[in-house]
Every structure is written in structure tokens, then in C-alpha cells.
């Protein structure tokens, strides 16, 4: 089984070396004559104004958190679905309860308006 995943490892190493090798080559080949203009932040040819550090809206965080919760829910669904044929009606009821509890959370988030973009 591990041999199958060795392909992923090979692809990973190939993909990682794809940007790294040209950069190493360029490091040895290029002349280095930095000036103040060259080292400046490039922003579409315009002079950069202000700080790059902007505060995100709290909505992004709520969306990310709802995503994590339902992501984990789906993770629980996968092994259940794979083993479904061996488990029968009891498992269906159990998963329904599991999902029902989480739908409660979704309803709460919905009623709070946490899913609306302001």
C-alpha cells in the first residue's frame, strides 16, 4: 500500500523542486546591483500608501468557524457511509441524531444572522 503513496511523495518532491531549483540557479547566475527603487514595494507601478496590515471583518472568522464545524461533521460522515452496508437501520438513526444536533447549530447561526454578509 505504501508503494502507491510513494508516487505522491515523488510528485511532492518534483513539485517542490520546480520553483526551488530555478531560484537557486538564478541566485548564482544573476548580477546583484540593488538600488533603492529596485528594492521598493511593487504595487501595480504606483507608490504604496498605508499599511499592508488591515483588520479583517469578523464575518470571515465566523464563516471559517462554521466551515470547520461542518468540515468535521463531513469527516464523521465518510467512515459511516463506507461502513453503511454493514450497519443497517440503527446507524441511520444514529447519524440522523448526530446531524440533527448540528443542524440546531446551523439554525442558531442562521437566526443570529451570522451567515448574512454585512
Amino acid at each position: 500500500m505504501l508503494a502507491h503513496y510513494a508516487f505522491i511523495g515523488v510528485f511532492f518532491i518534483a513539485a517542490a523542486s520546480f520553483p526551488i531549483l530555478p531560484l537557486i540557479g538564478a541566485y548564482f547566475l544573476r548580477p546583484s546591483r540593488p538600488t533603492e527603487v529596485k528594492l521598493d514595494t511593487y504595487e501595480c507601478g504606483l507608490e504604496a500608501i498605508g499599511d499592508i496590515w488591515v483588520q479583517f471583518k469578523v464575518q470571515y472568522y465566523l464563516y471559517a468557524l462554521a466551515f470547520v464545524v461542518f468540515d468535521i461533521e463531513v469527516v464523521f460522515l465518510y467512515p459511516w457511509a463506507v461502513a453503511f452496508n454493514q450497519l443497517g437501520l440503527f446507524a441511520l438513526v444514529e447519524m440522523a441524531i448526530f446531524l440533527f444536533i448540528l443542524i440546531g447549530g446551523l439554525v442558531y447561526a442562521w437566526r443570529k444572522g451570522a451567515l448574512e454578509w454585512v
Binding site: F76, Y78, A81, A83, Q86, E94, G105, Y108
Partner: peptide, 29 residues
């Protein structure tokens, strides 16, 4: 193996499985 995890959730670890959903609910709320 995925099948073993699935059957274990529905048999030996049924209560932790259901408690996990409550935990996720608490996290969201």
C-alpha cells in the same frame, strides 16, 4: 481502515460519537 472506523463509531464508540456532535454545536454557538 475507513470501514473499521465507521463500524467502531456505530458500536463501541457510539456515545463519544454523539457527544462529538454536541461539542461541535457548542463550538459553533
Amino acid at each position: 481502515s475507513t470501514v473499521e472506523i465507521g463500524t467502531a463509531f456505530m458500536r463501541e464508540y457510539l456515545l463519544p460519537f454523539e457527544v462529538a456532535s454536541v461539542l461541535l454545536l457548542v463550538a459553533l454557538i
